[in-house]
Nucleic acid binder design. Structure first.
Lengths: 343, 343
DNA sequence: CTGAAAGCGCTTACAG
DNA sequence: CTGAAAGCGCTTACAG
């Protein structure tokens, strides 16, 4: 930081008052005479004085700053969560700052609590259930962090963590998605999903099996594939299904982990000469901006990410210790259609 | 912050040493006896002690934290910049945290320097040239901020700001894009651009006119439209061009402000019964992840955003006062083809 | 190799 | 309505 940065002492001296008075003016306290206030404000203006949040945070033990940590930004829906959280925080007089996942767990998978060092007023953590960040390290990190600041979790939260959280209810979502597809006549429905958490209600595969059972459809193991949430992985996953089966056994509908994966499925389908939705129906999840602009436009699940971000801030600040479920809705577009009649 | 948070005093007492010694161990100083070090480290471990960045920043006058402010996260390429900057910062022992645009300028367009209060070791600011954030407020904010911390700018930087910066050379990019399209035989080329900065080299429209002149093509004013960087705006912009002209005068190629706008153009084209690239070639800018998964895959300009983020950190930390140009490259995919021969 | 002391820039009771 | 003083949790010379 440059040398000349003015402090509260500089302002006090120049305005001919004590630092306590400057502090009162800066914090907008009422009990300052109009005359003094104006004098001090004039000096503040002229020197472009901005009090140090560091000093303020130390002495008041509040930073009026929240943190949010997102696993990766390449998935646009995290941007939505951030936007929602940011607006809600601001409207309540808080500032919010985003920290990379490495502030919690470093690339080698070690606990890395730089986040804790910031003494924030609270932090929202979006957890994605992947082989690396489930398990011990995550849990230990969170426990340690909790002794420094309140934490609210978003996503697929491990059972053992009884924190305030907003959880994705993936089982129910997938189950209802299966219903939606069966109403269109589909019976050969594949799931290209992720590895979600350790509790049934968060697991896509659990909801998938329930959905099949609801409609008395058999479970065909080659229709259920796990993959990561990128287009590349999605493309590979569908390739694997299609290349491993005779066309007569190809699924007529696929539920994708998320919209990015769905984009990969589009490419795989094209490669295999399948037209969407005539030969193959595809359903995404997240409703990212691009989803509406794919061709055909992607039918997907809107996870209401902005609202989610707002609610997380709300939950963090009200201090209640509860779990909530994230809201969601199915967005019908063009990528799901009636089952092909050819067979 | 919870009450029980341990401080350096707690550790010192428990380990039977002075706080200076604890500080030395925490900071990894050499001159501590092995025995003392181990004793202190054991206590640190057991208490999960994490020193306060606030206190540390105050006393050392360094935070080892950088900031980055992005105009909005809905454009995925900002996520790329952040990712690149984040990696580079980490490899140099710095932490980086993202601040929303409101930390600089509030929604009412006032200077809002909460950013300055954080006494960061430096900040990267991605500036987008829009009617709201050009002009006085931005410039005053930046000037004030600069007295608190080093600043590096990315993007379309107003002429009058002689800061270290990495600038987009949009004029040259558009000029060469026009060339690329003329090589495919196009003569009726439209530009759906933005309002970039006040200097020629940053202006798409300047490069557009140069490109047309290079190839002795006439400038047709209805082919040049300004719009914001969203799909909706892009769709409207092309609608306006097509609806305002007889089909015989429709452009055969369009340069879009960015990939999101290009997605909107896809939809407008479809609505007007135009097939891409047979009837209309479209070129984007940014090379966001989705670009490769549109149908047809989008030909675009890769702005090398991750590399850009890395370079910005580099520039910030080396402290040199220079302007650099951002690198870029044309990515040929399927959305640009030979001019239609029908006419 | 280790400790005592001052200081970073604020806020917060406490007096007046 | 205003000021003097203590304290927040560290780092940094300075002594020893």
């Amino acid at each position: 930081m440059p040398e000349g940065t003015p402090t509260i002492y500089d302002i006090a001296r120049e305005a001919g008052v004590s630092i306590a008075t400057v502090s009162r003016v800066v914090r907008g306290e009422e009990n300052v005479s109009k005359k003094t206030r104006e004098k001090v404000q004039a000096v503040i203006q002229s020197r472009n004085f901005m009090p140090s949040s560091l000093a303020r945070g130390m002495s008041s033990r509040r930073s009026y700053t929240l943190g949010i940590v997102l696993p990766r930004l390449t998935n646009p829906n995290y941007a939505e969560i951030f936007t929602g959280a940011s607006e809600e925080a601001r409207s309540r007089g808080y500032h919010i700052s985003m920290f990379p996942w490495q502030s919690l767990i470093d690339p080698q998978g070690n606990q890395a609590l730089t986040l804790a060092s910031w003494r924030l007023d609270g932090v929202i953590i979006c957890v994605e259930y992947t082989p690396e960040n489930q398990g011990e390290t995550l849990i230990r990190s969170l426990e340690a962090l909790r002794s420094y600041m309140p934490v609210v979790l978003i996503g697929c939260v491990p059972q053992c963590l009884q924190y305030p959280a907003i959880t994705y209810h993936m089982a129910e979502i997938v189950r209802q998605s299966v219903s939606y597809l069966t109403e269109l006549g589909h019976e050969k429905i594949a799931l290209i999903g992720g590895m979600e958490a350790d509790q049934d209600e968060s697991r896509r595969d659990v909801g998938y099996l329930e959905g099949l059972a609801d409609h008395k459809l058999p479970f065909i193991s080659s229709y259920r594939v796990f993959c990561r949430g990128t287009p590349e992985e999605g493309e590979k996953a569908l390739d694997a299904i299609l290349d491993g089966l005779m066309p007569a056994y190809w699924p007529t509908a696929v539920l994708a982990l998320n919209d990015l994966v769905a984009m990969g499925l589009y490419r795989s389908a094209k490669k295999h000469g399948l037209s969407i939705p005539n030969d193959l129906s595809i359903m995404g999840c997240d409703n990212i901006v691009s989803a509406a602009y794919l061709s055909p436009a992607l039918t997907t699940i809107d996870m209401c990410q902005q609202a989610l971000g707002k609610r997380a801030v709300d939950l963090l600040l009200c201090g209640e210790d509860m779990r909530q479920r994230a809201e969601w809705k199915l967005v019908e577009r063009e990528s799901c259609g009636p089952v092909p009649q050819r067979l």
